[in-house]
Design a protein around this nucleic acid. Structure first.
Lengths: 213, 213
DNA sequence: GGCCATTGGCTAGCGGCACTATCCAACCAC
DNA sequence: GTGGTTGGATAGTGCCGCTAGCCAATGGCC
């Protein structure tokens, strides 16, 4: 398949595909001669993943390149690749460690992880970007005057742990070993908008039940 | 308090505060004379909320203005105002109703809501922006070849319903009636990054437990 | 009374991002 | 041989969230 067909079947303009090629989000096609390249189903699949990450997952192009780079890195084992890919995901500013709200947030997050017995998370702790973004979000709530402490967060964390168990169960049954890293990335990034939407729908539903329309 | 102090205490530059005033995210201070205005604790609080919505919640400035406009609209009742504010929140592109993935996604979402008995969600259904964004996200997963159907989503929805019940419980105990709309908006927008971060931490933890580091 | 910092209001500019548009010479299919 | 397509390159576009600078009026301070 050539550029025009790849564009046709993915619904992405040729200009944008060229842009993704330039940015290294998509591997170049098999070069037939100076002016022609051949793309296969793998390219189509990757292109759809890229679009989903960017448009649905709202991942910046540069981040997507980094994440996919780890997914494709054959020199590493599966677990490491996945870890590296997920490590590259989060965006958002650095917390200002001087800020008392950040200090308080960090303390509560650490207490939370200790209480839950999430040892992995605690060991990697202050380094992990996910941990960092949790601290930033909790700090924002604290700054607004909401008393977010470990006890309040714990039930939420337990619920998200149940969600995570489901995620991994799904992964085990629905992905072959070869494609597991890619599937895991897709699951992490794309389940989130689904969860968010379900969360808001549930809020609307529960609110309507309690207080009427 | 004057502009400089508001800037000092919020950590937001005067230039940015002026920008927010221009954009209508922040009510003008009480004008003392042509060149001086007085701001109060309410302004500081609102400014912190605006910052949190934009920086932590990743809400575009234009959307934040719309949402806060509903929060402040005294002509409406509390429930309506909250509904209107939440209605204004979601971003993201319109689904292409021609796309078979979108058609399939819509069908599964409708089946899901029917199965759960979320009648409120079903009635407001195709109009609601949240519903729309759920369809878009599910469509992306389907397009990638993941078989996301109502049966698969139902347990996730149940879990998010539990989360939503906690959210509303928190709201009932921690917010006075006057500030409830503002708190609800803050909760909807700012709990999400927390949930997302907890979700990813839980994934890492569970993955480490199952497969080692 | 003189002086300097600060104010609201204004306009213009900036840097980043995700494309988009155009031009080009090479080439291949008909 | 001619029209359409290709990869490659470069420049431009539109939006967004600020940021910077100028201004005349004013206020507090000495």
């Amino acid at each position: 398949m050539r550029l025009a067909e790849l564009s046709e079947r993915s619904g992405v303009s040729t200009a944008t595909i060229k842009y993704y090629l330039r940015e290294g989000l998509l591997a170049p096609g098999r070069q037939i001669n100076t002016t022609t390249a051949e793309y296969d189903e793998g390219h189509l699949r990757r292109l759809r993943l890229v679009r989903a990450l960017i448009q649905v997952g709202r991942i910046p192009v540069a981040t997507a390149r980094e994440v996919l780079g780890h997914v494709d890195d054959d020199s590493l084992g599966r677990t490491i690749r996945l870890g590296a890919a997920l490590w590259a995901l989060p965006q958002g500013a650095e917390p200002d460690e001087e800020d008392p709200a950040v200090v308080a947030a960090r303390r509560e997050v650490d207490r939370l992880l200790a209480g839950l017995g999430w040892e992995t998370a605690r060991e990697l702790s202050p380094l992990s970007p996910v941990h960092r973004s949790l601290v930033v979000a909790v700090a924002a709530l604290i700054r607004l005057g909401y008393s977010w402490d470990a006890e309040l967060m714990a039930p939420y964390a337990e619920l998200m742990h149940q969600v995570a168990r489901r995620d991994l169960d799904y992964l085990e049954t629905h992905a072959s070993d070869a494609e597991r890293v890619e599937t895991a990335v897709a699951a992490t990034v794309l389940f989130e908008p689904v969860l968010t939407a379900l969360h808001r729908l549930a809020q609307e539903e529960e609110s309507a039940r309690r207080y009427g329309l």
